[in-house]
Write a protein that binds this DNA or RNA. Structure first.
Lengths: 151, 151
DNA sequence: TCAATAATTGTATATTTTTGCATGTTTTTT
DNA sequence: AAAAAACATGCAAAAATATACAATTATTGA
């Protein structure tokens, strides 16, 4: 099912970008984005994504991705945890990251991407990933998913 | 009142030692430790302590001290991946990070540092951390170490 | 393809957490 | 020391979140 993974992606992006204080609130935003679901489903989505209600520095509630935005160096495998979503436009991949981490993660992708990655450009929370010609979306997705890890 | 801070302390200890999945459960443990309070009070205590309900790797709920996103404890060893070093010059702290991660980590410090941190400036792999006047090196070190963590 | 199996979702409901309010207690101010 | 202000707490109610169950939709394998 396509709907679901797209929705999960969107949820991750929203949560990492704006302050969301309750599921109802997030539900509203998702509705504005064109998704139709109930709070029950959202609750399950959040559980799958390990997004939990935390407290920000002012003591207000805020939903947050619980995985630290870091590289997991265990076992020689490099795994990037800070990336929130990946989507293609044409043959260009756009990765959204936790704010501030784009350039760091982009560097990792350059490092690890090998032949398949022609280059990357990073803003603050967005990375443009340009694959080398001849590599399919599927291949790039697989490569990056591997770096990122799955949900 | 002495009772309260002692209780908060105990809560922190319990939560960091054993798996607590709900406030009721924690309440039971606290009662066994000789404290007498209601779930309502406990809820407020947890809020003060910024202890929130998160999801562990198996998908079960677990209360946790808000965790610094800086480190990865793979294989029992504590490994600081984002931040490499911390040193003072005068009352200014300089943190070295993995290339590209400085601004991301600086943002975390701003987020989590509370009153003690006046501000941060990030380059590519270096963060300047300016403590608020009145905070000692030791305090800042403790704070940042805590953020960086010894999980 | 079709039946069997698994996954996803909504509804209704249960569970859990948060909070308004009243009250008692401690601390501060005068 | 009395009054005022600030803080802590329980109770009850509200709000938020999670889940059992049943229906629906997708997926798998012969």
């Amino acid at each position: 099912m396509k709907e679901k993974s797209s929705r999960l992606n969107t949820i991750r992006e929203i949560v990492s970008r704006q302050k969301i204080g309750s599921q109802e609130e997030l539900l509203t935003v998702l509705t504005e984005h064109g998704y139709s679901l109930t709070q029950a489903t959202l609750s399950r989505d959040l559980k799958r994504l390990k997004i939990t209600k935390t407290l920000d520095s002012t003591g207000a509630y805020q939903y947050k991705l619980s995985e630290p935005p870091f590289l997991n160096g265990g076992g020689g495998e490099v795994q990037i945890i800070g990336a929130n979503s990946l989507e293609f436009s044409g043959n260009i991949a756009v990765m959204k990251t936790r704010k501030g981490y784009a350039s760091g993660i982009a560097a990792e992708i350059d490092d690890e991407g090998g032949d398949a990655i022609l280059g990357t450009i990073a803003g603050d929370d967005t990375i443009l990933i340009i694959p080398r010609e001849g590599y399919s979306r599927a291949e790039i997705t697989a490569l990056l998913s591997n770096l990122i890890g799955t949900n």
